[in-house]
């Protein structure tokens, strides 16, 4: 049993740097999707094929494996390359409008359509065409129609 624990610990120690590195690389890949490449116009660091971009991606992997946090790395990159490096504008200051307007447009669109739908439903209800069926008959027709449609 002791031998097993010893063996497992040794294996863990051997694999630790590799797994830590893999974890750092995953974090770096994730981060490189969040920043624009300072080396190619208009693409994220993750997409950028230039050698400088590869070097910067490797550097970010190193930073993560040295235990730096994502926030630390982000602010370091922002200091070095300016706010244009952020691939999504911050939800504050000059970047706020980017986020607010689509949300506002959606809310306005939904509000308008709810308003119109209610208006059209009321208009239909107040139309002078009366329901030729009494409520009880209407219920019966509805239920027979439902039965005809069959079980879903």
């Amino acid at each position: 049993m002791k031998f097993l624990i010893l063996g497992a610990t040794a294996l863990a120690l051997v694999l630790l740097p590799a797994t830590a590195f893999a974890a750092a690389e995953d974090q770096a890949n994730d981060l490189s999707n969040e920043i624009m490449s300072p080396f190619c116009p208009g693409v994220t660091l993750h997409e950028c094929p230039s050698p400088e971009a590869i070097a910067l991606r490797n550097e970010i992997v190193d930073w993560f494996s040295q235990g730096k946090t994502r926030a630390e790395i982000m602010s370091r990159l922002e200091d070095e390359y300016g706010p244009q490096i952020l691939a999504a504008p911050p939800a504050e200051g000059a970047g706020l409008g980017a986020w607010l307007l689509p949300a506002a447009a959606l809310v306005a669109g939904i509000a308008l359509s709810v308003f119109l739908l209610r208006r059209w439903t009321r208009a239909a209800a107040s139309d002078d065409v009366e329901d030729v069926l009494a409520p009880a008959e209407r219920r019966r027709v509805d239920s027979e129609l439902a039965a005809l449609r069959g079980p879903r």
Partner: peptide, 23 residues
């Protein structure tokens, strides 16, 4: 809006921003 926002932001606030995939 996201596509044009870099221009809108630069004209209105003078700040150069990029709007990329995460947005």
């Amino acid at each position: 809006w996201g596509t044009l926002y870099p221009i809108v932001a630069e004209v209105t606030t003078g700040v150069r921003l990029l709007v990329g995939p995460p947005f």
